[in-house]
Simulated scan of single mutants.
Amino acid sequence: MPTRQTILITGASSGLGEGMAREFAAKGRHLALCARRTDRLLALKAELEARHPGARISVRALDVNDHAQVFEVFKSFKAEFGTIDRVIVNAGLGKGQPIGKGRFDANLQTAQTNFIAALAQCEAAMEIFRAQNGGHLVGISSMSAMRGLGRNLTTYAATKAGFAALLEGIRADAMGRTPIKVSTIFPGYIETELSSQSAKTPLMVDTQSGCRALVAAIEREPAKACVPRWPWAAIAWYMRLAPLSWVAKVS
């Protein structure tokens, strides 16, 4: 399996994107990091360059809902590094509201960010990979993609399920025809700045442990992976097979 030396991560200014950047930099990889908050990106760049002098770090501002900007930023990273070996489509939005409660605005924003913007990122990444005849596309989905969920998770779960289906379709198109690999990652509960503001969730792991597990899974380049594997692979099996009435009680 080739070493993916140059890695592009979206949504890299906080949360899982920031955590994965730290883990990959520790491995000596070169990083193309983008997000809306450039102050956070610049601080992260300075930190990583100080800790890991061999890693080359480049940052750019990116709002993934500006679809033209997605293509521009990805192409500019490609021009700067020469090759992009892996793209991690990580940028996403966690908010949502129950359907029919008057918050279509929140659900629309969630759908646009988690699916339409993800589609733009996949398109931009695959254009680069097809042109260079190689690469690894990684999509950060969610365990919520396993089933339709209620209340505030309804739209979020639907977008993550749609994203997983999109990645599977890209994988089907690429397999056997190109050396491009496509991986769908389903994280369980991993602590981030957002989650730390609420009550502790059972089965939640700390950010560093969770991001280390994410990077280890990504490095294996599987078609699909639940992270951390235990207990989330078993929970995924339960969520897919259990009656909806049971799943609804815990969503």
Score class of each variant (00 low, 15 high):
199 A>H: 08
52 H>M: 00
153 L>Q: 12
173 D>P: 01
233 A>I: 03
121 Q>C: 15
72 E>S: 14
74 F>C: 13
147 R>A: 14
203 L>Y: 14
238 Y>E: 02
230 W>S: 09
154 T>E: 12
199 A>G: 14
228 P>F: 04
38 T>M: 08
128 I>Y: 09
69 Q>F: 01
109 Q>T: 11
194 L>F: 14
122 C>R: 00
43 A>D: 10
236 A>L: 04
114 N>S: 13
134 G>P: 07
26 A>Y: 09
123 E>D: 14
2 P>T: 11
179 P>G: 01
9 I>L: 04
80 E>L: 13
242 A>M: 05
45 K>P: 04
29 R>Y: 11
185 I>P: 12
127 E>S: 08
108 L>R: 14
38 T>R: 01
18 E>I: 00
11 G>R: 07
34 C>I: 06
27 K>T: 09
44 L>A: 04
183 S>P: 00
145 A>F: 08
148 G>W: 02
207 T>H: 11
68 A>D: 11
112 Q>N: 04
90 N>W: 06
166 L>A: 05
121 Q>S: 14
28 G>Y: 04
73 V>Q: 04
225 A>E: 09
157 A>W: 12
71 F>V: 01
30 H>Y: 08
79 A>R: 05
84 I>G: 05
21 A>W: 01
88 I>A: 11
110 T>F: 08
205 V>I: 09
2 P>K: 11
90 N>V: 05
3 T>G: 00
75 K>D: 13
104 F>Y: 07
35 A>K: 00
130 R>I: 15
113 T>D: 09
161 A>D: 01
247 V>C: 10
47 E>V: 03
